[in-house]
Amino acid sequence: MSLDFNDETFRGDFTYRNSARAIKRFPFPFPEDSYMYSVNMEPHVPGPVGSVFEHMFDVDEHYVSEMRDRAQVLADDPLRCQSLPHMELAGWDLLELIMESKARDYPHWFSLHRDGNQWHWINRPLQIEQRFTFMDASTLPCGPMEYITRQTQGDFTLQDQRDDDLWIEAGMVTTQADWSLDFDIGMSFKQWHAPVPLAHQAGIFDRALKFLLKLQHGAPVRRFNWTMTVDPLLDTSPENYPKWGPSKTTMTPETVGRRQHLRVELQTLHRLPRSNAIAFPIRCYLISFQDLVTVPKWARRMHRVVRDIPDELATYKGFIRNKALMLDYLAPFDDGLPTSPGFAPE
């Protein structure tokens, strides 16, 4: 593996690590000292150089190992990638969006040559070279969505738009915060969000759906979501809950700093041009508590967020059992000083 990418695991011995650079650019998701649901969407425009917002699709030091982990999840459970028959066009839209973005943003790693519908794709980190006919799935080893998302960090869902609603009808989901594509596929926007507590009553989903139905091609948006994960496990799926659920019961005061991870999702939404569908990449970033507290503002704020979060949310996010353990670890890093507004370190 090249110097650009870590050789690490997200299972078994969990050798996943963030470099000093990765910690510095970690997308800490809390702009203030408390947390509640909101339609926290903003335009997905390029951010500062080096940040996770610099490019349309962030490629970081975990790329190659994450793709290896995805291949393993799919080998064990092929239903993590599904596309209903009418969604293939949206899959081509997504393939084009990702290939064009990566070839433009990371020309040293990715190249795309187009000659009409004859395309030539080179992915150097994964040592892939592919010539294929755009819009002819028989010229790829698998469907277009599966092909490109086996080479792109983050989960992906594709939503068809019809009848003033969005329908989740294709996806590649192997790094999810405890939800199942196989269970949700075919559902409408409010059906697949039904388990979320409190937000429905606040009208969050009415406003979010109304906004998304009008999302325009060329004007993608983004938001954060977050949860907590014990050990740097990407595949926290309901399908595998018996394997990873018990890990919550074995954390101790001695291991919480190393094992407890803040899990942040950078979610972006893109209108796709040919299919009029919406692509929803959900990119997962993991940081251990012991790395997180190296940034004083993040340490203070993380303590306050966990301390003050409503029990319904701590339960839904799956960490209420270890809340006290987490607070005991974080409290010494909170000296009570005020924090500045916004995401950035002081």
Binding site: H86, M87, L89, D160, R162, Q216, H217, G218, S275, N276
Partner: peptide
């Protein structure tokens, strides 16, 4: 403006 589709085909 960029194209906007309020009259799409139903892909199904």
């Amino acid at each position: 403006s960029q194209p906007v589709n309020l009259f799409p085909l139903d892909a199904r």
